[in-house]
Amino acid sequence: MKLPVYIGLLDEAEATLAASFRVVAEGHGDEPDVHFILQTLARMCDAHREALKPVIDRYGEDVEGEEEHRLTANGVTEVRSGPLALMLDLQDLYVLVHHIDVTWMMVGQAAQGDRDKELQRVVKQCEGDSELQIRWLKTRMKQAAPQALLVAE
C-alpha cells in the first residue's frame, strides 16, 4: 500500500508551502495585501497539517523506498528584487499550490477507494482551500501583470 507515501508527501508539501507563503509575505511587506493575506494562507496550510495528523497516526507516513519515488517541489527560501519580483514570487507560489492541489486530488481518489470517511473529509476541506489559494494568487497576479510588464522599470 503506497497511500502513506502520498500522505507523507502532502504533509511535507504543506509545510514547504506554509514556509514559502511566510517568506514571500515577509519579503513583500510593502504590499500590505500580499503581506497579510499570505500569512492567512500560511495558517491554512498549518491547519491542513493538523487535520492530517490523525490520518498519519493511522497510516504512518514513512515507508521503505519512498525517497526514490517522492516528487518534491522546492519551496521559496528568499524573495527576488526588482520590478518583476512580486509577480515571479507569486508565480512560484502558484506552482507550489498546484502541486499540492493535484496531490490532494489523488489522495482523495484513494480515500474513496479505501472508503476512508475521515480522510475524505480532510481532503474535501483542504482541496477547497487549495482552490481558494489558487484563485487569490491568480486575482493578484492578474492585477499586477499589466503594470509590471508594461510600465514598471
Partner: peptide, 20 residues
C-alpha cells in the same frame, strides 16, 4: 476591463514605485 479596477492605495503604491 482586463483586471479589477486599481484601488486608491494601490494607485499610490504604483506612484511610489514610479510606474505612475
Amino acid at each position: 476591463h482586463w483586471a479589477p479596477p486599481t484601488h486608491a492605495l494601490q494607485i499610490f503604491r504604483y506612484a511610489e514605485q514610479g510606474s505612475i
